[in-house]
Design a protein around this nucleic acid. Structure first.
Lengths: 251, 251
DNA sequence: CGTCCAGTTGACTATAGTCAAACACCGTGG
DNA sequence: CCACGGTGTTTGACTATAGTCAACTGGACG
């Protein structure tokens, strides 16, 4: 198993943070920025395939994804796994642990990924000193909720083909604002096993479904990654109207 | 169609609010209570089957459920419906509208239901004046997220029988802290169509699945309602370990 | 008495899962 | 150099699960 490689040497100040410069995130006020610089305790680099958080465990930290891909999942006792959502730059990890104590899901890195580290026990201080930042945390939580709502609709009421099309269109849209702009490649770094565990299908049936999407010229599959050729076509197959990703907050 | 019956005559002060007296909710400080009394603009009584919020629309208000049952759902364009979650006393309705503007799901009353009304445009004031209450909003949002995670696991990886058992155990557990203590009946007020739209199954197959749960003596079905006879058995069938419902915040 | 709604049932079809066998690719170590 | 195992993907044959269609029950209500 891969391990987390600690790297608490505090690379980037929030001022120079590439995410903070990305126009899809709202910019901090001077006071907020000063607080965040102090709130941030460091950075961590995690290798592809490593576990970032695991179900049933406590974590003293909150994280924001700075670069790379990860996913959240839960498992049943007999090993059946369900991917709940994917994490991309700007996403907050571990908020649920604040409410529950123990995590009720695990988080695993899909690519190598860098995380911004915050101490969970200072979160209340953030609410007290910067209500707008507190509100932003709620905003992000609510945004996650919206994504889960759409995933539920997908699992419950979309066919296998629609579900696959939705998932790939969704990930392509999400990466479009944060990953692809600063990257030469624009692939989605997942295996068909991940797709299967997200869609609630078997690997075999997932493979046959992906094949149908390829035959329609919507995507291309490259061992361990997917290239979206026609995002419009995917959205149309899925009956999905895309993300409403206006400017959003960042922690 | 039923309509919302306005009743803004401000029935109960927050001080005498039965929910505030329920030990499963954390109690307000004197300052918080004063703020909430001012923040609350009134109460609304909604009849069973009425739509409380609807997809694509704006709402100037946030609500807290005071009594009764409701559910959130989304639909695809061809009418396929997915129930996302159920709303019980103490649950916040409409938070997502704050983030998105338009609602991305609808909310419908399952029984007649009373709602506490808050003006959405004063929400930021709540964060500014009472950081602990702001944190509570995040807490509630995060709790909703946890429930959705479990529902996703259910839809994606549980069999029809397991899913049905999980749903009924879940609703029974949720009602156990807020509905049943103050009520003579302890039924879950849903039809098999609701169950089908929650589990992502057809009505026919749902009916056959429910029948199996009845044969095992876990539940009884009474036109338009379900009585849980053996919650333990349901949890065991579902492989579900129950809610971790410690003391939680209330707005 | 007829209508509507919720629930029930059986026959048949469609969708998805399971089992099994391969292939391609990529490292490792002899 | 090549044999080896591992992962990711592909395919076909067969089975299981769930959906569709259709008919029917029973109760509530005007």
């Amino acid at each position: 198993m891969n391990q987390i490689l600690p790297k608490n040497d505090r690379r980037v100040g929030c001022r120079e943070c590439p995410l903070n410069l990305n126009p899809c995130f709202r910019s901090f006020t001077a006071e907020e920025l000063a607080f965040m610089e102090d709130f941030k305790t460091g950075e961590i680099l995690v290798g592809a395939g490593s576990t970032i958080l695991s179900e049933g465990h406590l974590s003293p930290n909150l994280y924001t994804v700075l670069s790379g891909w990860a996913f959240r999942y839960k498992t049943l006792e007999d090993g059946r796994r369900q991917v709940l959502n994917y994490l991309l730059p700007g996403d907050l990890i571990g908020l649920q642990g604040t409410v529950m104590g123990e995590m009720e899901h695990s988080v695993e890195a899909l690519t190598s990924i860098t995380l911004c580290v915050f101490p969970r026990d200072r979160l209340m201080e953030l609410y007290a000193k910067h209500p707008t930042l507190g509100f932003d945390v709620t905003w992000l939580s609510s945004r996650e909720e919206r994504m889960l709502d759409e995933h539920l609709l997908s699992l419950g009421r979309r066919s296998a083909l629609e579900r696959a099309a939705y998932l790939l269109a969704f990930l392509h849209a999400r990466a479009g604002t944060t990953i692809y702009p600063s990257n030469s490649t624009n692939y989605i770094p997942i295996t068909q096993t991940h797709v299967a565990d997200t869609l609630g299908l078997s690997i075999v049936h997932t493979n046959k479904t992906i094949k149908r999407l390829m035959e329609r010229g919507a995507i291309r599959w490259l061992g361990g990654a997917c290239e979206v050729l026609d995002a419009e076509k995917l959205s149309k197959i899925a009956g999905w109207h895309g993300l409403d990703e206006r400017v959003r907050p960042l922690l």
